[in-house]
Amino acid sequence: MANIEERLQDFFARFLDLSPAEITPQANLRDDLKMDSTEMVELVVALEKEFNIRLKDGEITNRNCVGDVLKTVGEKLG
């Protein structure tokens, strides 16, 4: 999980053009990372490519924090 956490932190930093330090598990996607609805759509597609997983509609878009995304991706990767 630690490895996935680092990858996800790096992924979010590249995706949002932010420093890795800003990507904490508590960071709220909308309120802290200022992600709008279109960025959420791109996020799902980018996560699928990055981690070679499939995500259902709404599975990530309704999550609020980076930690929630980590949990979902971690479960997909088994």
Binding site: S37, T38, E39, V41, E42, V45, E48
Partner: peptide, 10 residues
């Protein structure tokens, strides 16, 4: 569908 950037909408 997955090939299209959501940003195209705006």
């Amino acid at each position: 569908r997955n090939g299209v950037s959501p940003y195209n909408a705006s």
